[in-house]
């Protein structure tokens, strides 16, 4: 992790990012007030992406997790370990994730491995970072024979397919939790390096 990750955006981000704030004046909030709040929140969001080495000086800040999204909490969001998939959507406060059941603390025995389930993407390639997933989505849409399935590819979560329904993040996460809580082997029989939970991506 590093701060540049916080500013990495998509050329189409402008289509959905403004949805966060654009309608709030209807509720009676002054637009200027919203912009100030957004700027403060984005600065805090930048801090969440601080390099992992920062932990050496401040630790994982477990107490702050009670209320705030700490760098440790946000690292979980960027992890591709099955057990961490689709968790911790918050920016400043962790309360929303806790209220709606999407919070996950960083487990002491599972180090986050950064990335997404698509192993094809090379994060050192600008065109791949910006366009590869769009290409994959376009290929999926073209592969679907029925119009309803083409629409579903856009509206369903990543991992869905029209052939057998596919496997999505929640299924991977549930399996990983079961395996974590009830490992199929005795701990002393297996060397720590063979843990299946650390950064293994699906082949599909």
């Amino acid at each position: 992790m590093k701060l540049t990750v916080a500013v990495r955006g998509s050329f189409l981000g402008f289509l959905h990012i403004p949805l966060t704030i654009i309608w709030l004046p209807i509720l009676g909030f002054d637009p200027f007030m919203i912009f100030i709040c957004e700027s403060i929140a984005r600065l805090y969001g930048l801090y969440e992406h601080v390099n992992d080495h920062f932990d050496r000086y401040v630790g994982k800040q477990r107490l702050l997790e009670f209320l705030f999204v700490t760098p440790s909490v946000h690292r979980v969001h960027h992890a591709k370990n099955y057990i961490y998939l689709d968790r911790n959507y918050g920016e400043t406060f962790s309360i929303w994730d806790k209220i709606f059941g999407t919070f996950q603390t960083e487990l002491d025995d599972i180090k986050p491995v950064y990335g997404i389930l698509s192993e094809e993407i090379n994060s050192k390639s600008l065109w791949q970072v910006q366009l590869l997933l769009w290409r994959d989505l376009w290929r999926d849409i073209r592969s679907a024979p029925r119009l309803i399935d083409k629409i579903r590819y856009v509206l369903k979560p990543p991992g869905w397919n029209h052939r057998d329904g596919g496997k999505m993040a929640a299924a991977y996460r549930d399996e990983a939790w079961k395996e974590y809580q009830h490992p199929p082997y005795r701990k002393e029989e297996v060397p720590p390096s063979s843990s299946k939970l650390e950064g293994v991506s699906p082949s599909s």
Binding site: M1, G13, H78, V129, L137
Partner: peptide, 16 residues
Amino acid sequence: HVFSGVSMAYTTRQKK
């Protein structure tokens, strides 16, 4: 994260 159509515009942020 729920809708693929939006996810593609967002997932660029997900790698380290």
